[in-house]
Design a protein around this nucleic acid. Structure first.
Length: 520
DNA sequence: ACTGCCGGGGG
DNA sequence: CCCCCGGCAGT
């Protein structure tokens, strides 16, 4: 739902060029602080005129009409984010048009005049605006409020907007594309338009957010957005089995979405952030590397393109004809999109979301090496730290982002070694969410897809990932445990020495207290 | 059923 | 404090 993001981001905060007051021809740059709209109640008489309050370089505030200023663009950064965002929205299917159309629809009200430049002309009429009842009147007053107020207001409005599904004409779409691109570009360079301050100590975490995640303020938990979390997903009677077509399950993925676009598939993470004021500081798109990982059991293939992974799945796992271009969408079930934060990759403990055993390829993959270069911090972390706390800790560095809501995953750290005297490969899984990854020399904290192909194997099911994943993607378990520590996974004195050598136990163990010797 | 360990009790 | 154990909860 990029639409929502766009709604949130407006011209406010954008850098603009304004004519020099001294008339020497050198344009000044400034940042848009507010937009006023000249009253023009009769829609049919023409477009509205906007007046922008611009904070100039020298700190002064000036007002300019839309004719006087030009939106500034940052050529170097513009393409990256835009491109990636478009890519993820259309999921490689090249069906971006409708989305862009909507995009325009939504942002037009916020920043329409700025778009004129790109659109080369005035909009025919604003008749289409009628789809957004509450906004019009509201916007007509008090435009001089602070930016943050405007932002907040906008958020309220945007979350209730009923985004129309109607498609536009080809022409319009083209215009919209251009305009949307420009707006996105300008937005990407505007520092002031960050999400308003939120008190939450967000963690980012991938899982919940990221996938859905992330841990977002709980006040929204009743919105139904989280309803996907349960494996049951009662809201959707027709829970699809993997072979279902991709399109048919999308609505299921976003139960609360009022505009289930066919293409919103991938970025539900963003969707959540837009819908719910997700506090996580948004990372620049260009700092995120998107990879696609095959989640078929015993296959951890990672490819850099959706098309590639789709082909991989289709050919290798689904046994489809090699040259059959047709995709029935089934592949979608067997791969997940992974976002690697290349910014922090090097200095934070590495995380891996999907726990499939690595393939040769993964070993060789530069990114995989990045994960492997764990810090000592991740090392200590690796010691079966699976307390609820650690689950929600912001340790996820790389967000997995599945195409399917039910694949959304909670981060889980997986121990790769233990402190026992066992050999380097000595860790043996003692819990269902743990498994040995001894194949990799440096310890790695796994976060995300809790279900490994090996794991699903244990269930004796030939069916790859989906259902197991669904089971693990439930919201954080209720803290009804009254602070009870989650059960340690490591070896304890009892296990190590046995009942017969009880005198060798640490005192805590003898007293039935939390083990100190093998504490996790 | 097994196991980790919290809470609580006895000395 | 040391020591023990009932009982809960995760596996």
């Amino acid at each position: 739902m990029h639409t929502r993001r766009l709604v949130k981001r407006s011209i406010l905060g954008s850098r603009v060029y304004a004519p020099s007051p001294t008339g020497d021809g050198a344009p000044l740059t400034g940042v848009v602080q507010a937009v006023k709209q000249q009253e023009n109640r009769d829609i049919s008489t023409g477009p509205r005129r906007n007046v922008y309050t611009v904070l100039m370089q020298d700190g002064s505030l000036k007002e300019f009409s839309e004719d006087e200023i030009a939106v500034g663009f940052n050529q170097t950064t513009a393409k990256g984010p835009l491109k990636s965002s478009l890519k993820s929205s259309c999921n490689g299917r090249g069906d971006a048009a409708p989305l862009l159309g909507q995009t325009m629809e939504c942002q037009r009200g916020e920043a329409d005049s700025v778009c004129h430049e790109a659109a080369e002309g005035e909009r025919p009429t604003d008749g289409r605006r009628t789809g957004r009842p509450p906004e019009g009147p509201e916007r007509e007053r008090d435009h001089t409020r602070s930016v943050s107020l405007l932002e907040q207001k906008r958020k309220v409005v945007s979350s209730s907007i009923d985004v129309p599904h109607a498609r536009k004409s080809e022409e319009e779409v083209d215009l919209d594309k251009v305009t949307a691109a420009m707006v996105l570009t300008s937005l990407s360079t505007s520092p002031l338009v960050r999400s308003p301050p939120v008190k939450v100590t967000e963690g980012l975490n991938g899982s919940w957010k990221e996938s859905g995640g992330g841990v977002t303020p709980s006040s929204y938990s009743s919105s139904g957005y989280w309803s996907w979390g349960g494996p049951s997903d009662q809201s959707n009677p027709s829970t699809p089995s993997p072979p279902l077509s991709a399109d048919s399950f999308k609505p299921f993925r976003m139960p609360s979405s009022n505009a289930p676009l066919p293409d919103d598939a991938i970025d539900e993470q963003d969707g959540s952030s837009l819908l719910f004021d997700e506090p996580i500081p948004r990372k620049r798109k260009n700092s995120m590397k998107v990879m696609f990982k095959c989640v078929w059991k015993n296959c951890g293939k990672v490819l850099s393109t959706a098309a590639g992974i789709q082909r991989h799945v289709r050919i290798i796992h689904l046994g489809r004809n090699f040259d059959s271009d047709r995709s029935d969408g089934e592949e979608d079930f067997y791969y997940a999109e992974i976002k690697l934060n290349t910014d922090t990759m090097s200095d934070v403990s590495p995380s891996v979301l999907s726990s499939a055993p690595p393939t040769q390829e993964q070993h060789r993959h530069p990114l995989a090496e990045g994960w492997a270069s764990g810090s000592s911090e991740s090392h200590s972390h690796a010691h079966s730290n699976t307390t609820p706390l650690s689950r929600s800790a912001p340790s996820a560095l790389y967000l997995i982002h599945s195409d399917h809501a039910y694949q959304a995953t909670a981060p889980i750290s997986v121990p790769s070694t233990t402190s026992t005297s066992d050999g380097a490969c000595g860790f043996t899984p003692s819990g269902s969410s743990n498994f040995s990854i001894s194949w990799q020399s440096p310890p790695v904290a796994f976060t995300g897809a809790a279900v490994s192909p090996t794991h699903s194997q244990a269930h004796g099911s030939g069916e790859p990932p989906s259902q197991a994943m669904a089971a693990l993607s439930s919201p954080p378990r209720a803290s009804g445990s009254l602070g009870r520590k989650s059960r340690g996974e490591g070896k304890k004195c009892r296990k190590v020495y046995g009942m017969e050598n009880r005198d060798m136990w640490c005192t805590a163990c003898r007293w039935k207290k939390a083990c100190q010797r093998f504490s996790d």
